[in-house]
Design a protein around this nucleic acid. Sequence first.
DNA 1: AGTTGAACGGGACTATAGTCCGCTTGTTCC
DNA 2: GGAACAAGCGGACTATAGTCCCGTTCAACT
Lengths: 211, 211
Amino acid sequence: MERGAAGGRRVDLELMRTPPPKERADAARNRAKVLDAAAALFARHGVESVSMDAVAAAAGVGKGTLFRRFGDKAGLAAALLNQRERDLQDAILSGPSPLGPGKGDETVPPSDRLHAFADAYLDYVLDHMSLVRMSETASPGARYRIGAYGFWHRHLMILLDRTGGAVPDGEAAAHALLAVLGAEHLTAMVESVGRERARAAVHALFDTAGG
Amino acid sequence: MERGAAGGRRVDLELMRTPPPKERADAARNRAKVLDAAAALFARHGVESVSMDAVAAAAGVGKGTLFRRFGDKAGLAAALLNQRERDLQDAILSGPSPLGPGKGDETVPPSDRLHAFADAYLDYVLDHMSLVRMSETASPGARYRIGAYGFWHRHLMILLDRTGGAVPDGEAAAHALLAVLGAEHLTAMVESVGRERARAAVHALFDTAGG
DNA sequence: AGTTGAACGGGACTATAGTCCGCTTGTTCC
DNA sequence: GGAACAAGCGGACTATAGTCCCGTTCAACT
């Protein structure tokens, strides 16, 4: 995974307070070179068909550099998604309702926020399917280890617990809902029934699970 | 994947009618040797830590033999699960209700059969977690390519469509329910909330989705 | 039983992810 | 500006999945 001030994955707001260890100039340069090269290669040939060797060569850095900085191919994909992911998380934390909490005095029912999340998250995943898929499935269990999963899970859990006793176990239900939003599963579902019906099915499940 | 009479995966009853191509005697011998060796190694060291080289060596066959017969590591895992999977499929197709259809004149509501399926499938996966996980995640999308997925999907879809219009799109809903039963997701969920709460969450979703 | 063609066997070979460690380069502090 | 030390660099190295191809073995047919 990334290090340094500019690359921290948004995991927990508390953790963001650790002082920026300051990234060395050459490291920053190489990080940019790698991300540019990876973006270009992935766009041209598809994420699956690009080897880490190829990325390193195109970026003009050694393999060691690539892996030390990004950990593995999933980490590289995650770094490329970083900005979009942050945008979505920011919108959830502090944006307008129904996706975000809105201004202090307006109240939106949790069910509206659940559906808004489903829509926004589906947009995010469907727009970057191959990168998200790589970041989730490059190694077994990768999806559940990265910090972002914890963020989505906590958000859903809080909303489900607010539905007024309708959901007996928000923590478990949040996992179940996220299973349906997994890139691997969405890929298969979209291939089978198309985007519209897949989206509708997700909403139907969010409906029954939490309002 | 396997070939020959003894190894056909249960996919579609129609396809079972293709004449048995007859497995050669030496092939059958080697198949048994490989399955025995793999079962022993997997049990002793865990599925993840056993390489295909090790299986080939322990079975006393070459790598080529191993891969031609089983395709990949997922195929080997699937072959080891074959009997249990067939048992479950048989119980669903022709066993007693509520899991199976029961004798001709008794009628069981689809919702009972849905919950019976959830329970039986959870038992199956939880009892063989690492093998199922290997068979589903060894290569990206593996789960959705193997025939068994189609079987579970069709079963759920038929039941959902019988719930009397409660489910507008049984085909899509069946995919969503199966997402929650994926080995990868169940592993994470059980680790997070334990078996009991995970099972309850699955039932809650089956409840709301189909009765 | 002999012939023959196809299926099988097996190990060398390739491709790729990921590791390791001695060398180089920045940064910091005097 | 220079020394010292940490951080970063990079390519050789390992491990493993999966491929290929040719010699061997089986089984059907005469």
